[in-house]
Amino acid sequence: MYRQKYLFLIPGLLTLVAIIVFPLLFTIRVSFSSWDVIQPGLDWIGGENYARLWEDERYWEALLRLAGMAGGTVLVQYVLGFGLALLVWREVLLKRFFRVLFLIPMMTTPVVMSVIWRTIFHESLGPVNDLLQRAGLEALPWISSAGLAFTSVMIVEIWQWTPFMFLLLLAGLLSLPEEPYLAARIDGAGPFRTFFRVTFPRMAAISVGAILIRLIEASKIMETVYVLTSGGPGTATETSSYYIYIRGLRDFQLGYAASLSLIYLIIMIVSLTLIGKGLTRIFVKDQA
């Protein structure tokens, strides 16, 4: 009877193996093969793909670019998301309406939104340049200059995913106890002191969680780059996911793309673990 209880684990374990373990093991195996347009299937070439990727400057540049893009967007999303959550946390007019309104960007499909943003940023026909010119300002090369194209991708990401940050932080705010605020009021603390001494420290744990979740998501950015800039101009907005997509599905270098993916996965696991530990040590230590 005692042993039979493990039988109940089998469906879950099988599902886990099917959707996580098998694809991962298969990808590892593919990364040691030369599978491409000429060589179908799983031959064995040892670590050739891994040796090749060390010299692949485009891959490492894309990874650095991704780090900047993900860090920048998540930071802005956190600040904006926290601000919006604070706005609708307390009793305000049309609170429910605003809570739903803020979530709309997150509910739309990234590809569709990227197409719409591409139209908005269109340098000849888009409304942004039109408005700038009506205001007497110069039209800007939103997609065709390296710096602005990078900024445009970040704007779309921030617009789309700030609501996610908002949602998590609002849930955190709503779960805070009332007593510390009563005590702060009795002690005569103003709104800023209350925020920095009461709200922010108590939101630290959930903030770290939200930032990590968003960093994981942001590190996979692909659709926005694909639709908005195709990685250009030049390679100015090429991120790791997009580069791996090009190598894997456009060039059909499946073996090499698998090795790129695995190294990317390892780097992400290590760096996100370190970031998580660092943030926890800095912000959550006192709480613990």
Binding site: S124, A139, P141, S144, P233
Partner: peptide
Amino acid sequence: FPPGGTSFG
């Protein structure tokens, strides 16, 4: 090129 012409699909 027209504005944006360097990234025309």
